[in-house]
């Protein structure tokens, strides 16, 4: 239980710090880089190296690479939906999560099938 409380606070602090850094940067597209900062990753991998061996953490990071590729597709899709379909930001970001899930799990499945 205490591990999850620590996770909550470390993750919350990491995300808030990156988000506040993005808030004070201009232009908007540069600030957006911090929307894809490794905030949750730093907190999670930092705790994982304490509780697990290095090979476990390495597997997590390899899968994270597929998640990052899915994030690139997701963010590009959100940008297009906002520009062309005039959706509101909340609707666009939530709807495109389906794309992230499909791309991330497809890449993970493909990498497993090829290895």
């Amino acid at each position: 239980m205490s591990e999850y409380v620590a996770r909550f606070f470390i993750g919350g602090i990491a995300v808030s710090l990156f988000a506040m850094t993005g808030d004070v940067l201009r232009p908007k597209s540069f600030a957006g880089l911090f929307g894809a900062a490794p905030s949750v990753a730093l907190a999670t991998l930092g705790l994982a190296v304490i509780h697990h061996d290095a090979s476990y953490v390495s597997i997590q990071a390899k899968s994270m690479a597929w998640g990052a590729l899915a994030l690139i597709c997701y963010s590009w899709a959100v940008c297009q939906v906002l520009m062309r379909l005039r959706w509101r930001a909340l609707a666009a970001t939530i709807a495109c999560l389906a794309l992230w899930i499909v791309v991330a799990f497809s890449l993970e499945w493909l990498s497993g099938a090829m290895s």
């Binding site: 957006g32 911090f34 690139i72 590009w76 940008c79």
Partner: peptide, 21 residues
């Protein structure tokens, strides 16, 4: 524009994951 920035930041996240692994 924020989303476009996040897509570009995704390349950084990919580099982070590959380097870390």
């Amino acid at each position: 524009l924020d989303a476009a920035g996040a897509a570009l930041g995704g390349f950084g996240l990919l580099a982070f994951a590959v380097t870390f692994s």
